[in-house]
Design a protein around this nucleic acid. Sequence first.
DNA 1: CGCAACATTGAACGGTATCAAGTATGGTGG
DNA 2: CCACCATACTTGATACCGTTCAATGTTGCG
Lengths: 254, 254
Amino acid sequence: MRNANAGDAIHFGPGLLARQVTARLTLDPPDQQALLAAATPRHVLKGEYLMEEGDPRLSLIIVGSGMAKATRVLADGGQQIVAIFVPGDMINAGDLAFRRSVVSIVALTSALLLPIPLATLRTLMDARPAIVTALWRETAAQAAIQQEWMIGLGRRTAEARMAHFLCEMSCRLQLGHPDAGDGFDLPLTQQDLSDVLGLSAVHVNRVLQGLRGQGLIEFDRGRLEIRNKTGLYAVAEFDAQYLSELMYPEAGSS
Amino acid sequence: MRNANAGDAIHFGPGLLARQVTARLTLDPPDQQALLAAATPRHVLKGEYLMEEGDPRLSLIIVGSGMAKATRVLADGGQQIVAIFVPGDMINAGDLAFRRSVVSIVALTSALLLPIPLATLRTLMDARPAIVTALWRETAAQAAIQQEWMIGLGRRTAEARMAHFLCEMSCRLQLGHPDAGDGFDLPLTQQDLSDVLGLSAVHVNRVLQGLRGQGLIEFDRGRLEIRNKTGLYAVAEFDAQYLSELMYPEAGSS
DNA sequence: CGCAACATTGAACGGTATCAAGTATGGTGG
DNA sequence: CCACCATACTTGATACCGTTCAATGTTGCG
């Protein structure tokens, strides 16, 4: 949302956006440009629904900027967030393999989306096999993150779960700009956090205070500062490697 | 493991096995045969490790018969099972997109595996794009099941979680032979169930007794009988559709 | 200013874990 | 065929982590 390089090969976006996105797309420049050129950028507002449970899938959506959550509402009114999407992510790439989405997608911030209509995508996939591979890899990356969440939900204490999630988001959000400090925007309410971590909102509050009290983090109005990275990693038993491998996979796997 | 049709196009397997497997591979016959022909069948015994955390990925493994679990051991000795594989599944298809596995794979029964060396697979993927699509679809299917587990771990009671898991396994195991009754082999100990559901083994025992007491199931020595399918589905809030869509996706999505 | 959303705090309850026996069950070797 | 052993299952008592309920404080926004 800063310098709009009108001269970019990618015609629709500011330079910064393109860089964040392209860093995640493991595609050769021609494939990448073909894919991005097929998108019709679209802005959405915070809180807007991009997709609802049961909707047919109409497009592949790449997040250009902003964040979104994938959530499922249960009969008793409870809610579980099953994914958080950051710039460069393909929103529920895996769902595309099926007829309809089983989760709702909600924008956590105002966001710029790059939706690619399914018909166009199919043509591209036929013409450029690397795009199928990229979709597969993205699906696999999201599945690996999900596995980490499952382990947290099943076997970690509330504190470790929270710490682990914060570490994960820190890594994922800072991939594009590794020079940034230890603070970043995490536009989640405590209610959102509780729906990610399978806790009550009240307990999230107490856990956050615990982490604050240990001098590990500050978290205020959607901004997280990591005060003691080593300590936080220790509480989380966090191994950053699983993510860097996901995000920057070995070249030449097709 | 019954009638060995030596005349089958697929040279290594009994007819029944081939049918179970091929029903899940959404590939045209030529692609399917090319893929399966590249496998060197291998038997493993109950309890055998097929893969350990951190191992490099050397092959794509399709389950021919038997079952396996994907598990992750934590520092405190706790354990979380993140997937159960049944005949026709590709074991951690998603992990192939990366360098190494982050989970261990253990055989739950003696099993027949169809491993396809990674080098061969890459050649096949280049020659037959439909195979990449199939890997992607399989990864997506497993991710969708994982999401369902996450929802259970995060937001369902122990009883609903258990019921839901049993419903899921019932559907997945009976896809090949829909005529079978409401009983099937589920070779999991109560300890295994606890590691799937994020509970203690003691509590699993009590939950099972609860379901038995309501006349919903029988579960004895690895054999599950569903006595009241409607009732069990109700307790689980189980929607069978999400699975049938995963397993029998619409034709022509490439 | 006033409302709505979000965050914080305290008290009491409850689901599930943990600990500690004890009881089947099935496989093995004699 | 039996004695033995390991594994799995069952049961009861107790403790705790996290929930629920209810009230209050805080922030931002139209």
